[in-house]
C-alpha cells in the first residue's frame, strides 16, 4: 500500500483564437477496489460551463463548453491516491463483460497479429493467467518502445507491423491477442510513479476479477499505478476530446508527476 501524490496537467495551444469550444474530458481518477482518491482538485480553463457524468465504462466524464475566444485550453488535476488496497478489481459476471471480449476497429487483427498469435501457441496453456503472462512477455521482447512511430489513431495491427510504439500500442496489441483467445480484456489509461507522461495498460478478466498487466514494462500492475479510466480501447478513454470553431493548428502538452508521500 502506498500513498501517491499526483498531478496531471494538459494544455492545448492553438495557433490562433478559437471559440464555440465543446469538450469532453476523462481525466479524473476515481475510487476502485485498488485505489482511493483524496484531496482531489480539478481546474479547467478558460471559463466554461461544465457538467459531470459517468460513462458506460464507469469513467468520470466532464463535459462542457466555452464561448469566449481563447488561444489555449487545459486542465490541472491533483490529489492523493492511496494505492494497493487490493491486487485486483472485482468484476461482474462473464455474461456482463461481453463487450470487452470482441474486437473494436482498433484491436481487430490483421495478418501480422495473426502470425504473432499463432507463434504464441497459447493452446498449450490452460489458465487465463498463464496466457496473459505469455502474451505480455512475448510482446515485451518483440516490440520496441519508441516515440514518434505511431499516433493516436494507430491500430494494433499497424503498430505491430511497424515494430515500435508507445504504451498505448503495447496495450492495443495485447488486447487484440487476448480477444483472439476470447478473453475479456480492457484498456486502461492512468498514471505511474515517476515524472513524464500518462500511461496505459491492460486489465484481463480472470474469474470475476480484473487483473492489471503492463506490457510496456512487463510487470503486473501494483501500488505504483493510478487508474483514470478504462474502456474497450483508447478511444473510450480519450483524456480530452473537443470540437471548436477556428482554422488553427494545435499542439498538446501533457505532464504527469506521481511521487510517493512518506508519512513522517
Amino acid at each position: 500500500m502506498k500513498k501517491l501524490k499526483f498531478g496531471y496537467h494538459m494544455k492545448l495551444s492553438f495557433s490562433g483564437a478559437v471559440n464555440n469550444h465543446r469538450f469532453s474530458l476523462k481525466c479524473i481518477p476515481h475510487d476502485t477496489d485498488m485505489q482511493q482518491i483524496k484531496e482531489l482538485s480539478v481546474s479547467v480553463y478558460p471559463d466554461h460551463i461544465i457538467s459531470e457524468n459517468t460513462d458506460s465504462y464507469g469513467n468520470i466524464t466532464l463535459f462542457g463548453y466555452t464561448n469566449e475566444y481563447h488561444n489555449s485550453f487545459g486542465f490541472d488535476v491533483t490529489g492523493i491516491a492511496t494505492t494497493g488496497l487490493a491486487d485486483s478489481e472485482k468484476s461482474q459476471e462473464l455474461h456482463k463483460v461481453g463487450m470487452y471480449r470482441y474486437h473494436t476497429p482498433i484491436t481487430r487483427p490483421g495478418d501480422n497479429i495473426r502470425y504473432f498469435y499463432s507463434g504464441l501457441q497459447l493452446s498449450e496453456l490452460k489458465s487465463t493467467r498463464e496466457k496473459a503472462l505469455r502474451i505480455m512477455e512475448e510482446l515485451y521482447s518483440s516490440f520496441q518502445y519508441g516515440q514518434g512511430y505511431t499516433c493516436m489513431e494507430t491500430t494494433a495491427e499497424q503498430a505491430l507491423s511497424g515494430g515500435q510504439g508507445v504504451c498505448q500500442d503495447y496495450a492495443h496489441i495485447m488486447l487484440s491477442l487476448c480477444r483472439m483467445e476470447t478473453i475479456p480484456c480492457r484498456y486502461v489509461a492512468g498514471m505511474m510513479m515517476g515524472e513524464g507522461s500518462s500511461h496505459a495498460w491492460v486489465e484481463v478478466w480472470d474469474e470475476e476479477k480484473w487483473i492489471g498487466y503492463d506490457p510496456t514494462n512487463k510487470r503486473l500492475v501494483d501500488d505504483d499505478y493510478i487508474k483514470i479510466s478504462n474502456g474497450r480501447d483508447s478511444a473510450d478513454c480519450l483524456v480530452n476530446q473537443g470540437i471548436f470553431t477556428g482554422n488553427v493548428t494545435q499542439t498538446q502538452e501533457i505532464s504527469v508527476i506521481v511521487e510517493e508521500v512518506l508519512d513522517e
Binding site: 465543446r22 469532453s24 457538467s51 457524468n53 466524464t61 463535459f63 463548453y65
Partner: peptide, 8 residues
C-alpha cells in the same frame, strides 16, 4: 454535441 450525455 453532448445531446447523448444529457440523454444519459
Amino acid at each position: 454535441p453532448h445531446i447523448f450525455d444529457i440523454y444519459r
